[in-house]
Design a protein around this nucleic acid. Structure first.
Lengths: 241, 241
DNA sequence: GTCTATAGGTTGATAGAC
DNA sequence: GTCTATCAACCTATAGAC
């Protein structure tokens, strides 16, 4: 599978064709070199156009990054919410969430790198919008963990901290995954789902059925301490803890 | 504590004074904006010098990054080897490794971000040197995990994959840690050591003492499938799997 | 919509006075 | 060792022909 095929899958519905080619080219370039090291000439060249053609479809280089970041974050959020709202025990749903999220970060590791590691180059208003999506993704995982604890399926030292660790583990896959490596995206997803369940399982193993409080977050969703909103686009990097 | 104080701790023995100020300034700038978005003017300005003064102490901007990366990676490796060679059970030593590594990435998250996420901007020969240090860090963790499995203390689905996950979890702390957040570096270290032990623990809990094979790697250190060495400095990002 | 040409500004790094 | 001044290269984005 060519790099373009792997990168392009998520961008099928962008039209016109030239705009899609530019996004695909930008994802590859941003993932390889980083946003700031990538020139608009490079992007346009990869898309088979002159440097000026980029500006017919996108107002700035940052708008291209914003498009990539927005679609990628929305896709992640949909995926995690689908797992949260799916059937089965909390363990089933947490495993499904981790499997899907990890698989996506491995399969689309080029997109994943841009989505996860180039946030800091977004304009302040775009950054704010993306952070809102990230909080919602964290909420989805936290809900599953909290429900598992409430149901007696999980035993964790702390719900928000464990949620952070699970999310963190999945995100970092985009950084290290190498398609020429030993494992397929499916295998990494299965391995990580296994490891995460080991991390949260109650000592006696999952409880099949017992009296349990109403499922839901039950006030367990602590407000996150996020850093101050950015003054300029490049003044901060983290949006968690 | 000022940002400079937190960043500066690791660079005390760099002389002369101007060279140290430049490294500290570079760490802060690279962590905030990324290597490519940082100008030599910005670094020199933060260090209280003219743009040209930087070149008295460092031949290029990349040499500054290399210095930061080399010292940070060497410090990480020393830390992990000290835990590996320390006393106690495999669980004790794995917990010590995670606690120290996570604590360092939280406390020195500015340095950590540069060390972990700006590798891709290194010149090819410098990059190769850093990757060698990273492999040795991975070896240190893998040795502890393998020894725990051999001793019956740990039960993991796969030693190399579990090692990767542990390392990954620790590294990602540099990305998300926010000193204005809820947790201190010590608290994150303790939490993560707890979570990692849950991840690797044998179902029946640690085995106190039993017949066990000679401790050591025993051939369990699989050769890593690393990507091809870079042709140019900016052509690759990952060095694992 | 795409091109060539280029404006207008910034960059990494150097020259030479002190 | 540090400064001011500057160069040559390169960048993002725009103008205007087709």
């Amino acid at each position: 599978m060519s790099a373009e095929a792997a990168t392009g899958e998520a961008w099928e519905d962008i039209t016109p064709d030239a705009a899609r080619r530019l996004v695909v080219a930008a994802v590859q370039a941003f993932a390889e070199r980083g946003y700031h090291a990538t020139t608009t000439r490079d992007i346009a060249g990869r898309a088979g156009m002159s440097p000026a053609a980029l500006y017919i479809h996108y107002k700035t280089k940052e708008e291209l990054l914003y498009q990539i970041s927005r679609v990628g974050h929305q896709r992640s959020l949909d995926m995690l919410r689908e797992a949260r709202d799916g059937g089965g025990s909390a363990a089933d749903r947490l495993a499904a969430a981790v499997r899907a999220f990890v698989r996506w970060h491995a399969e689309h590791h080029t997109t994943g790198r841009v989505v996860q590691y180039e946030l800091g180059a977004l304009a302040p208003d775009h950054y704010g919008e993306i952070v809102a999506l990230r909080r919602q993704s964290e909420d989805a995982i936290r809900a599953i963990v909290a429900e598992g604890v409430a149901a007696g399926e999980f035993d964790v030292p702390e719900v928000p901290g464990t949620t952070l660790a699970v999310l963190s583990l999945c995100i970092d896959v985009a950084r290290w995954f190498n398609p020429a490596g030993r494992r397929t995206p499916d295998e990494v997803g299965a391995l990580y789902a296994d490891l995460v369940l080991r991390m949260v399982r109650a000592e006696g193993g999952p409880v099949a059925d017992r009296d349990r409080p109403e499922a839901g977050d039950g006030g367990l969703q602590a407000v996150q301490d996020l850093p101050d909103p950015p003054e300029t686009a490049d003044r901060r990097r983290s949006d968690q803890q």
